[in-house]
Design a protein around this nucleic acid. Sequence first.
DNA 1: AGTATGAAAGCAATCGATTGCTTTACTAAA
DNA 2: TTTAGTAAAGCAATCGATTGCTTTCATACT
Lengths: 356, 356
Amino acid sequence: MSKKKTNVTVHDLARELNLNASSVSRALNDHPRISVETKQRVLKLAKKYNYKLNKAAYTLRTGKGKTIGVIVPRINRFFFSNAIHGIEEIAASQDYNVIICQTLDSTTKEMKSIKALLGDKVDGIVASITPDVEAKNPYAKCCANYKEVVKSQTPLVFFNMVCEDFKVSKVVVDDELGGFMGTEHLIQEGAKRIALLSGQTHLNIYYRRLEGYKRALTRHGYPIDESLILDGDLTEHAGYECTRKLMAMQNPPDAIFAVTDYLAIGGIRFLKRNGYEVPGDVLVCGFMNEPFNDLLQPSLSSIEQHSHQMGQTAAEMLLDEVMRPKKNATAQTVVLTPELMTRHSSSLEKSVLTPG
Amino acid sequence: MSKKKTNVTVHDLARELNLNASSVSRALNDHPRISVETKQRVLKLAKKYNYKLNKAAYTLRTGKGKTIGVIVPRINRFFFSNAIHGIEEIAASQDYNVIICQTLDSTTKEMKSIKALLGDKVDGIVASITPDVEAKNPYAKCCANYKEVVKSQTPLVFFNMVCEDFKVSKVVVDDELGGFMGTEHLIQEGAKRIALLSGQTHLNIYYRRLEGYKRALTRHGYPIDESLILDGDLTEHAGYECTRKLMAMQNPPDAIFAVTDYLAIGGIRFLKRNGYEVPGDVLVCGFMNEPFNDLLQPSLSSIEQHSHQMGQTAAEMLLDEVMRPKKNATAQTVVLTPELMTRHSSSLEKSVLTPG
DNA sequence: AGTATGAAAGCAATCGATTGCTTTACTAAA
DNA sequence: TTTAGTAAAGCAATCGATTGCTTTCATACT
């Protein structure tokens, strides 16, 4: 900001060391053509004067911005703000800046964000795709969006909600396992008939949670009753309505596993309002582990997705790709292990010890 | 990113228009020394080729980074992620980038963030200070932190939690009014003895909420009973404990106003666990309007602080300062009006219509 | 001795926009 | 007709780091 020649440049260092700026630059970048001795002299002086790379000059010359872009639906959703936190940490540690874009759940805005980031010539992009809920195949369109990124050769890493067809690195939580864990937990707590409040099962993450649910049932010798599997919106309201339907069955469930905490909360609301005890009559477990689950009554059991770590990992992978020479087709997928967070809503025992 | 000469430069435009790059640059910047006619020709071609300023070159030449820094305690708190959303919007609209720093509630990290941003030569900083809760006067130390910013001449705008001693622009919500509104609301709902669960009252925002509380009581002819005013941590636990104390009084309150939703939630938990009805026996109102207040049982009334708008306004003021020539001492303070969000916890009527 | 070999470092151009200082080309005043 | 005056635009340097191409030595080899 200030006009003062406050910052040391390679030229300053070069002058003092009786070297040329180019040599200083090479020394700082550990270029093999500079002698070890010179490198040490340069490094020492650089430290002494607290030399800092001028990012603008670097970018102008190299075209690399030392900046990564992040695209998420909304930054004020806990999951994403937490992931961004992780991304920021890693980026900052490598002296990279982060530009955050929100799609506000619109694929049109998603496209705009992508164009903006590519226009800014970011060095890479970390993204959780915005599914087009209107489309039959929600992935089709957004995949199309990200084709631009691939075309531009910009390194790309997906996290959370990913595009399967792209040969890029991905970080996801093991949704199948999450579905399994939650279901098995309910079984272990004594549930006999477990309903699943699902999201749209053509969305990969919800489909996989459904699979995990089925695997747990099968593993424990429970039948899979399709009438206990409902899908739709992810809202609290949807949870309320689905639960109403479920409890109206002749043979209603004694446990509800929801793929989202909001769904679970809606379910609990219906149950409480209609005289059912949670967990006394019906056990409930959600998914996402929203920070307020602890505050609910009863507190809501859930599956933690480690969003913070997800962000960190995604950023690490991206920066690795950005800085490493492009060894082709290194796309790898990191799968994080979800964690069951047991609270009152799914545990009679807990509930007795420390009531709601 | 890509090496292709994908971006149009002033030189490209100049060549095509038979002009000099400097003239093109001046035309684009609406410099008075360029004829209107030429400006129009340039602008037209720029539009045609979708000319975009090369930020790196601009920054290198001018020292201005077209970047603003944001410092907040944590970006995954809804209030802040929401404010950041607002800041991003405004910044993006002016082609500014945003660098986000978190202090994680540590004044030491706050200092680091400040140094990092100043090192990055950001054009300005938007900050919500991180009070040092250990210190007797929590403002003293953080104010010290921000002195660096002022020294460096970097434009600075505070929001939410501000440093009173600085002659810089500020955006805050009218906490006094918020305190007043919440209290008056409880009075109107029939409360006779209203307790206040406060934060540390040497923190300005809590002090002002306290003042508003007192003003409302006085205005309505209620006595101010100091024994009904408790302060301390802002945790749910603190809310629980304080409420326990309150209800143990011979003359317990029939309403609780908490300066934070977490405090209120703790209070409600105590009440429910001990056989009190909310709102039947005790009315409760919080402050912050956390997004999950709607999900609680009963849903929690609260004071909305318009964090999104706060971010927008702060960013607008900052960019104004950044772009305007430094007319000295223009520091202004914008005070936003809080909003009462009535829900079940404070309203018998609501509660009856649509039970908890 | 004479040249090949190569390590170490210097030179100068480059990236794109900006800006102080000219130059150009008229018009108005003397 | 000459000169001052001015509007319009060009020239060239600059910001700091990078990098292809040389240059400079010095050691090795025939």
